[in-house]
Design a protein around this nucleic acid. Sequence first.
RNA 1: GCUCUCGUAGUUCAAUGGAUAGAAUUCAAGUUUGCGGUACUUGCGAUGCAGGUUCGAUUCCUGCCGAGAGCACCA
Length: 588
Amino acid sequence: MNAYTEIYNSLKEFAGEANFSLDISESVAHGDYATNVAFVLSKQKGVSPKVCADELTQTLKEKISNIVNDIQVAGPGFINFFLRDDVLRKENESSQLKLVTSYSGKNILVEHSSPNLFKPFSVGHLMNNIIGEFVARAVKVGGANVMTMSFPSDVSLGIAKALMMIERDINKQEITIDYFNNEQEDVVIKYLGEAYVRGVKACEENEQSLEDAKKVLDKLYKHTNTGGIIEDETFYQLVGRTRIINENYFKKVLESIDSKIDAFVYESEAGNAGLEIVKENTGEGKVFTESEGAIVYIPHEDRKDINTSVFINSQGYPTYEAKDIGLITIKFSGAFGLQNVKDFIPEESFFITDAEQISHFKVVLDAASKLGGDWPEWVAKSHHVPHGRMLFKGAKMSSRLGGVPLALDVIGVVEEEVRERAGEKIAHLGDEEKKKLERDIALSALRVAVLRSKPGININFDPETSLSFEGDSGPYLLYTHARCSSLLEKGKEKGYEPIFGDVASLPIEHELVAFELVLKDAVETLAPQKLVTYLFKVAQAFNSFYGNTQIVTDNKEESEHSLAIVTRVKFVLKEGLHVLGINAPERM
RNA sequence: GCUCUCGUAGUUCAAUGGAUAGAAUUCAAGUUUGCGGUACUUGCGAUGCAGGUUCGAUUCCUGCCGAGAGCACCA
């Protein structure tokens, strides 16, 4: 049992059912932990918080003298706990993370980074990936059995427009279907992306193209709805082949930003499932209603925050709403058929999307909760995590990135920035190592820029200012981590071991002891900004310590104590950054 | 119009109803004959407005002002 739990339990004996808190103190003067229990109890007892706190402190001092050095009453009635140095050190010696959280032992599904096939990976996806990767890693470090899932869009008017252009090319004999089997992947990807743009443009320019695209969409729906009955052999092959190419490309992009998706569920699959469920539940006294040829859901009039929405359109196709109904069934019935993860039944399901979809999911979940059977339970287990947008400022970004910026282009701009600043220092590295390092640093800058704020708000992004590499930034944390590595290296050369000595504790040690608690809180509330703020505090406290203390000297005992601190700092940074999706290199 | 977010230093962001509202950046002044200066130290500077709830409000409630997003066959 750690010191926090021991203190908490002994407070609970006094507080009983009352709701109190035991927090990490904000400053050294306030000790390591602080509680407001006296405020809570003073009401029941009818005495002032201060008197109540004094009484409590007397009893507590005897009871937990084995872990606290001092207990002080401060301000209007706060009780501050100061840990004993030996307790502090014992906790800072740990180099293993064993968090017990509300996720521990549970199967948890995290859906994020859902691509639109044919459309390249944009900054919108990058934003989604940064939040999603955090959620996935957070619940994992919280002890969950995690699976990540992506929900690619494979049936939409946009995709039909692209397929229409490809069909035209085939008819004009400019390419053949074999092109997709034989040509190099990056060439094909380029072609597919251009087909999408050409298709959209063609439909803007003339009505006939739009009509054609709708016919292709019809064909696409028939194809997917019937499970691929071959009506048009070429079209069937085209759809299948382009899907695989786009999916592989998507996986490659994810890999290049240190992210991984375990399973795919296609929108077409979910559409089929949703269509059936919605139809079964349409009619008098049922959940869905026919209206103007479409099938809609009309929320209860108490729900002023959501509106009537179409689930099946008048052509009989499922809309995004019905597809999400279908997706919920697929998720909870463990029907990831082909992905060899059949027995994975999630106990919680998180899905990450842009904040503009908040009301959409409110409607879907409200409708789903009315479906009876397992549905209310599934809805209770479904958690929408909305995120804001990445907005761009600054000349460099806007000149390089017209229109909708691509994720890899944004990363490229940041990598350029890295080269400009670190050019000479990393000149001695091999090409491959240099590339990897530039990518790590660029990603750390981007991920921290996003994750230092609450999810859900827009991020203002300017690589020249807001994405400074100094101060509160990803590279600053990486740099501090690399500095730790280099110090440990130096200690090793001298033959020193990292061992805490018997000297008065330093501020950095009090900062470090909070790691597990902060991480647990950040994980349970899915609040990356709490972790980021803490990592900055640790890095600053450490750099300050480094600034006025020589770590490795001829004094063995002192050096070994300092090295023990360095070891813990490195561990905290490495593990903390990992949860944020950031790889911390040993050198930079 | 209805609904939902959000208004904190010049700027970008923090703060389970708690103590003197924290950082970074900008600006000003400093630190190294020492291990990585992408560092460290000091200073200037903020809760949109008006009420309410209570021991205590940036946080909760009401109104106003301001910004963004969503509102029927797109995803």
